[in-house]
């Protein structure tokens, strides 16, 4: 398989964080969205009304589809860097 441009990529140190209680790897300095994307976690939350699954969509901090809960706050996964030991959870609606 063509691995072209990515074969020479050197990434930062690996760190770990938790998503909904599951341990995950990430590279220091990347966003939560990138780390979850690499881990092939595409289902980030359920829409409040329909409960349909949602995932990363605009990747620019506009659509609010990728929001997750960190320290009880709702943050955009695509605009928030991951850090070692970070506890990230799916957002639950009332």
């Amino acid at each position: 398989m063509n691995k072209g441009a990515v074969s020479q990529v050197q990434r930062s140190e690996k760190i770990s964080f938790q998503f909904d209680g599951i341990d995950m790897d990430a590279y220091e300095g990347e966003t939560i969205a990138a780390a979850l994307f690499r881990a092939e976690v595409s289902h980030l939350r359920d829409a409040p009304n329909s409960k349909n699954p949602r995932g990363l969509f605009c990747v620019m901090g506009v659509c609010q589809e990728c929001v997750v809960s960190v320290d009880g706050k709702i943050v955009e996964a695509c605009r928030t860097n991951v850090s070692d030991g970070l506890i990230v959870n799916r957002v639950q609606y009332v």
Partner: peptide
């Protein structure tokens, strides 16, 4: 709205930023 659908420009963001 399904996970796995990315905006076209959104996908460029993911690729440029994270390869």
């Amino acid at each position: 709205t399904l996970p796995g659908v990315l905006g076209l420009a959104g996908s460029t963001a993911l690729m440029k930023e994270n390869l």
